[in-house]
Simulated scan of single mutants.
Amino acid sequence: MKLALRKIRLLVHLLHGMWVVATRFPKATVQQRDALNRAWSLRFLQLAGMRLVVHNDAARLDEGVLVVSNHISWIDIYVINAWRPTRFVSKAEVRQWPVVGWLAEQLGTVFLQREKRSDAKRIMHELADHLVAGHAICVFPEGTTSDGRELLPFHANLFQATVSASRPVQPICLYYEDAHGNQSTAPAYIDDLSLGESLDALLRGAPLTAHVYVCDPLAPGAERRVLAAEAQAAVQQALDRLQPVTARPAREAVGVQPPEPRVDVPHASHAGDAPAANGPLTQ
């Protein structure tokens, strides 16, 4: 299918998501909203030439949990919402983006003004309140995107929310695979790429498989830095499981376990029935 046609189909799907949010969300229950969100996100991945595979999903927590993930691309949000809809923490600029910003706000995104140190404290209290209320919140503690081959250091600030709320942390690892079974960097939204250039690279790299490895949850501790280090170690171990041995740069592969049994997630049966995911997050 020509690249331009695929882009048009994605745009139509995005606009349909706006219509669903505006007309169906006001009367929908939380569970119904989540189902609509997940169905829409699965369809988005399908239109982008991507399928979803989830590993170790039995470890998943659904309420009052801080989900922390490595961050590769704007499409990470759609992958996570296709796995299990959640709220996200986003840079404040996203709120001003056409279409996506409005959708992000409607779907409960927590916006962070990164240039203001004082805003971190406000966000921490807001996240703690969400966790106590039983919501799942997702953050990207690397603070920026990478090509996915190696992790960047996890920042500890937002982990304070789980300490304050006494709620667990669920690390997850995202990994993109090409049609030949190799790790793909096509989805990576890095350096000086524009959003349009990133979309072109992703579509040209298709077909792709998006892997979500669900790590065992971490009990809330008394120190956020310890939690951040434990979460980073868990995501690193999951990345080692998913990467081919030859693709692990500058790391020792001895003792790495094979991947857990995986579950292919079927695409949504009703295309376009649900709202857009929360949109691109922290870059």
Results as ranks from 00 to 15, higher is better:
residue 187 P to Q: 01
residue 213 Y to D: 05
residue 151 L to A: 05
residue 212 V to Y: 11
residue 74 W to M: 11
residue 127 L to N: 04
residue 81 N to W: 03
residue 259 P to C: 06
residue 81 N to S: 15
residue 80 I to F: 01
residue 93 E to F: 13
residue 212 V to Q: 10
residue 19 W to K: 07
residue 20 V to E: 00
residue 243 Q to V: 07
residue 125 H to T: 12
residue 76 D to P: 08
residue 92 A to C: 10
residue 265 V to W: 05
residue 256 V to Y: 02
residue 122 R to I: 06
residue 222 A to G: 11
residue 176 Y to L: 06
residue 77 I to T: 14
residue 219 A to V: 14
residue 162 T to S: 15
residue 144 T to F: 02
residue 85 P to L: 02
residue 21 V to Q: 09
residue 144 T to H: 03
residue 64 G to M: 03
residue 7 K to A: 11
residue 2 K to S: 13
residue 179 A to L: 13
residue 241 R to F: 10
residue 263 V to A: 07
residue 174 L to S: 01
residue 230 E to V: 09
residue 95 R to T: 04
residue 217 P to H: 02
residue 270 H to P: 00
residue 139 V to L: 11
residue 171 P to R: 00
residue 182 N to Y: 11
residue 25 F to W: 13
residue 193 L to H: 07
residue 107 L to S: 14
residue 130 H to T: 05
residue 221 G to W: 00
residue 218 L to S: 08
residue 202 L to N: 03
residue 33 R to A: 02
residue 149 R to A: 06
residue 191 D to F: 12
residue 101 G to R: 01
residue 126 E to V: 11
residue 229 A to W: 03
residue 23 T to V: 15
residue 214 V to F: 08
residue 219 A to K: 07
residue 15 L to I: 09
residue 240 D to K: 06
residue 61 L to D: 07
residue 17 G to R: 03
residue 117 R to K: 12
residue 274 A to L: 12
residue 239 L to K: 13
residue 205 G to N: 09
residue 175 Y to P: 14
residue 274 A to Y: 13
residue 142 E to N: 03
residue 132 V to A: 01
residue 275 P to H: 07
residue 6 R to I: 08
residue 188 A to K: 03
residue 279 G to K: 00
residue 136 A to K: 04
residue 125 H to V: 12
residue 215 C to G: 06
residue 74 W to F: 14
residue 247 A to F: 10
residue 160 Q to L: 05
residue 26 P to K: 00
residue 30 V to L: 13
residue 170 Q to M: 15
residue 42 L to G: 08
residue 193 L to I: 06
residue 67 V to H: 09
residue 140 F to S: 02
residue 184 S to D: 11
residue 79 V to N: 00
residue 276 A to H: 11
residue 49 G to S: 05
residue 50 M to S: 04
residue 191 D to Y: 10
residue 82 A to E: 01
residue 259 P to N: 04
residue 192 D to G: 09
residue 197 E to P: 00
residue 128 A to L: 01
residue 55 H to C: 14
residue 206 A to Y: 10
residue 276 A to V: 12
residue 44 F to R: 05
residue 25 F to I: 13
residue 108 G to T: 10
residue 184 S to L: 03
residue 226 V to H: 10
residue 158 L to Q: 11
residue 152 L to I: 05
residue 131 L to D: 05
residue 260 E to R: 07
residue 153 P to L: 05
residue 38 R to M: 15
residue 148 G to A: 10
residue 222 A to S: 14
residue 159 F to Y: 08
residue 157 N to L: 09
residue 274 A to S: 14
residue 253 A to S: 15
residue 216 D to H: 12
residue 38 R to D: 14
residue 9 R to H: 04
